[in-house]
Design a protein around this nucleic acid. Structure first.
Length: 825
RNA sequence: GCCGAAGUGGCGAAAUGGCAGACGCGGAGCACUCAAAAUGCUUUUCCGAAAGGAGUGCGGGUUCAAGUCCCGCCUUCGGCACCA
């Protein structure tokens, strides 16, 4: 058989042949003038350039490419850009470790990744590329910061932040893993610092409510994670008069119905209110409190996370007056109340709240039931009751249900001017300051006379100074402070001596709007062109890992809403559809060098070829599921590709042949495939789509070897559609098949043949006969058979009569032409 | 603790309430070959020689009919977690 090299499927030769031709052809350029195709925007989450591409990238880009290439072959002008999220800690850490400039490390890695992406045949538009560490990009971060600042959405405040005592740096929430620093495993503590924030909380309601508009188009898991993260709760603000204090203290509660059951009040130990209350107390109390506060400040997440933790706190010596019954409530300071949620103070109802109950037990405080849930009195049963019930011991609320009591209490508080309905969010404002070098400088100048002064727009960008001569090692303040020439400037307002803000922005700022920058990535006059935004945005299809399910997506949604309100875009959600691909594992766990289960992408590509690796990613299972590389078979994928390729090699008919004269059965297989394949891709069932290609290939193989033969036009028709469909998964093989079939390069632009419905009309169908739901017989029947005729046929069947035996027939269900079910008594 | 998702052959997985296991991996066998590789074909849920029976985590229910819908469990995974 294999007497000539022409018959061999040579992966390396095919890859080498087509790459330069595609460079010339540029099939995925999306900005061609006069292009009238309808548009689509497909976006893969951009990579961090930490080294060469790995298996995870290979999966993500394989799947994103299936979608992007599919829409091109459906006749769309698809914008599928790529960039690099290139600011951030890893570059800086690598630089410190090896004594390099983070810039060089970063741009070397970008060059390597870019070259790997080309080899991997990603369908990116190489005219639309961005790198967030380029000043042409991050100047617009600065511009956006100033837009936010003008709107009061960027502000500075003092707050407690995560602090790694070993690295001497502030850490983002996501860099604290199980209470430990993700890099050095030191126990993370808190430190009070003045930092920049974005006011995400102002958009909390919209960020939550608009999730409803994404229902069905985003994974429900992501929607629920976002809802959880935002965490809106409804309740009431209640004012408590404090003895010896002019101003009342407001507390937030979701259970205003239990106000009669409040037996004490608790303020967050680290809140200003606690200190103030204690100040008006005895010296003994002050000493005890000071000691306690010290303890709280030293506590860390490890202790906080322990579930069996005992409640701690100190009595402040002060009292609050319950607005509904005038009772004197002792005020305690404790760390189980958070300073930055609600008002940093609570009314404690130990009978109906687990935490208040635990606290009351620890300090022997009274417990009074005010909701009878039927479980008994918490004092006797030994646990608080939190469910539905009937109000007792609550004056005018007695006898009401929980929800009625909540409404009634809120209206009477409102009438009395002692409270009002309120809501709260778990979501906090976004801390964006980083005391790090490798990021976007915050465009603010601090002047002794004028205070915070925004850098004037015409002075942007504030370019990051060279790392040369700077001490990048962590020391609690930004390395930029060491760049004296850069830091010391004259105040734009008064001209006096002033200094630049030395902090840089969280890199999540960079990724919060990059999808808009792709619209006009080279513009030096605007962040993005609003006209281009009208044409392309929002993103039709976003593809990326579920690791970004909360922060990145939430921040991008926030930016989009702000830009909408500022009039720069006319939509409020950035990503219309979202696909989260799973992870690539090896032997059940995430790959890592230390675990010894690292699979190198470049090795896999060398061994099996680009196409086989891409196909394996798509065929492994549903895209959102994890892939265990030990369970899949890139070798099998390569074998299939060779089998498919041979079809094109075997076809002998000319491309001018009329397919209409081809074998009907083979044509039917091809057109059935065409009917189903698109739906599989559009519903992200890539594995099923690949299976359908395999089925068609099997039909064609048989047709050539033992059927109508290689010369039949139907075989050519089928092979051409196989080549087009394979182009989504295995672009090199597909292009080579296309060429073997006699076409000019560019299978990626070849649109699928229209489905010929007339080929799909069935004249007969297999009917099944069940007895009591069990399959007993099947036979071919005409599609238009009547119910009566089908039932008669079923009754004649020997297998059926046997199964019925001497049982009496109770009911016969006929669904002509497909099914008869005979139910016996 | 709260919220969510998922449990189907030896393995990855298919299946608008209507033939469970498509497609593939792995296994077995056959053809071609001196032989091997490659390729092609056949077979492969379990029990059973067969007839037949059982079977989609467990227990119920709805239905003529349930992997699919409902109720209650179990297990695994993910997210949040002193958020009042």
């Amino acid at each position: 058989m294999n007497d000539s090299l022409e018959n061999a499927y040579d992966v390396a030769a095919i890859q080498n042949k087509w790459l330069p031709i595609w460079d010339e052809l540029r099939p995925f350029a999306s900005g061609k003038p006069g292009d009238t195709r309808p548009t689509k925007y497909v976006l893969d989450m951009f990579p961090y350039p930490s080294g060469d591409l790995h298996m995870g990238h290979a999966e993500a880009y394989a799947l994103g490419d299936v979608i992007a290439r599919y829409w091109v072959q459906r006749g769309f002008n698809v914008m599928h850009p790529i960039g690099w999220d290139s600011f951030g800690l890893p570059a800086e850490n690598a630089a410190i470790k090896r004594g390099l400039d983070p810039r060089g490390w970063t741009y070397d890695n970008i060059a390597q990744q870019k070259s790997s992406m080309r080899r991997y045949a990603c369908s990116f538009d190489w005219d639309r590329v961005l790198v967030t560490s380029d000043d042409i990009y991050y100047r617009w971060n600065q511009w956006l910061f100033l837009e936010f600042y003008k709107k009061g959405l960027a502000y500075r405040k003092n707050s407690l932040v995560n602090w790694c005592p070993s690295c001497q740096t502030v850490l983002a929430n996501e860099q604290v893993v199980q209470g430990l620093c993700e890099r050095c495993d030191s126990v993370v503590t808190k430190k009070a610092l003045t930092q920049w924030f974005f006011k995400v909380t102002e958009y909390a309601d919209r960020l939550l409510d608009d999730l409803d508009t994404l229902e069905g188009n985003w994974p429900s898991k992501v929607l629920s994670m976002q809802r959880n993260w935002i965490g809106r709760s409804h309740g009431a603000d209640v004012e408590f008069v404090i003895e010896g204090r002019d101003e009342p203290v407001t507390v937030y509660t979701t259970r205003p119905d239990t106000l009669h059951g409040a037996t004490f009040m608790v303020v967050a130990a680290d809140a200003a209110l606690a200190a103030e209350l204690v100040e008006g107390s005895t010296p003994e109390v002050q000493a005890e409190f000071a000691q306690y506060l010290e303890l709280v400040k030293q506590s860390n997440d490890i202790e906080r996370l322990s579930t069996e933790r005992e409640k701690t706190g100190v009595f402040t010596g002060r009292f609050a007056i319950n607005p509904v019954n005038g009772e004197r409530l002792p005020i305690w300071a404790a760390d189980y109340v958070l300073a930055d949620y609600g008002h940093g103070a609570i009314m404690a109802v130990p009978a109906h709240d687990q935490r208040d109950y635990d606290f009351a037990k620890t300090f022997d405080l009274p417990i009074r039931m005010v909701v009878d849930t039927g479980e008994g009195d918490p004092v006797e049963i030994g646990f608080p009751t939190t469910g539905e019930g009937t109000l007792v011991n609550s004056g005018e609320l007695n006898g009401l249900s929980k929800s009625d009591a909540i409404s009634k209490m809120i209206s009477s508080l409102e009438a009395a001017g002692k409270g009002k309905a309120a809501k709260n969010f778990r979501l906090r404002d976004w801390l964006i300051s980083r005391q790090r070098y490798w990021g976007t400088p915050i465009p603010i100048i601090h002047c002794e006379k004028c205070g915070e002064v925004p850098v004037p727009a015409e002075q942007l960008p504030v370019v990051l100074p060279s790392a040369e001569g700077l001490d990048l090692s962590p020391k609690g303040t930004s390395p930029l402070g060491g760049a004296a020439d850069w830091v010391n400037v004259s105040c734009p307002t008064c001209g006096g001596a002033a200094t630049r803000d030395t902090d840089t922005m969280d890199t999540f700022v960079d990724s919060s709007w990059y999808f808009l920058r792709f619209l006009s990535p080279k513009s030096e006059t605007v962040a993005f062109d609003p006209e281009e935004a009208k044409k392309w945005a929002p993103v039709d299809q976003y593809v990326g890992g579920v690791t970004h399910a909360i922060l990145h997506l939430l921040y991008a949604r926030f930016f989009t809403k702000v830009l909408h309100d500022l009039g720069y875009v006319d939509f409020e959600e950035p990503f219309t559809r979202l696909l989260n691909q799973g992870m690539v594992l090896m032997n059940g766990s995430a790959m890592s060098k230390s675990r010894g289960n690292l699979v190198r992408l470049s090795d896999q590509l060398d061994e099996h070829g680009v196409d086989a690796v891409r196909l394996t990613m798509a065929f492994a299972g549903p895209p959102e599921d994890d892939i265990d590389w030990a369970d899949v078979s890139p070798g099998g994928a390569a074998k299939f590709l060779a089998r498919a390729w041979r079809l094109a090699n075997d076809v002998t008919s000319d491309k001018s042949v009329s397919v209409a004269s081809g074998d009907k059965a083979v044509r039917k297989a091809t057109h059935t495939f065409l009917r189903d394949f698109g739906t599989n891709i559009e519903t992200f069932k890539f594995n099923v789509g690949v299976a359908k290609i395999m089925e068609l290939v099997n039909v064609l193989r048989k047709a050539i070897d033992s059927g109508v033969g290689a010369a039949d036009p139907a075989v050519r028709e089928g092979a051409e559609e196989v080549a087009k469909a394979l182009s989504l998964f295995a672009p090199y093989t597909a292009e080579d098949m296309w060429s073997l079939l006699g076409y000019e390069p560019g299978v990626a632009l070849a649109e699928f043949r229209a489905v010929d419905e007339s080929l799909l009309v069935e004249s007969s169908i297999t009917a099944i006969v069940q007895v009591d739901g069990k399959l007993r017989d099947k036979f071919e029947v005409p599609v238009d058979i009547t119910a009566e005729a089908l039932q008669a046929l079923a009754m004649e069947s020997a297998a059926v009569t046997k199964a019925i035996g001497d049982k009496e027939i109770a009911n016969v269900i006929v669904r002509a032409p497909k099914l008869v079910n005979i139910a016996t008594k």
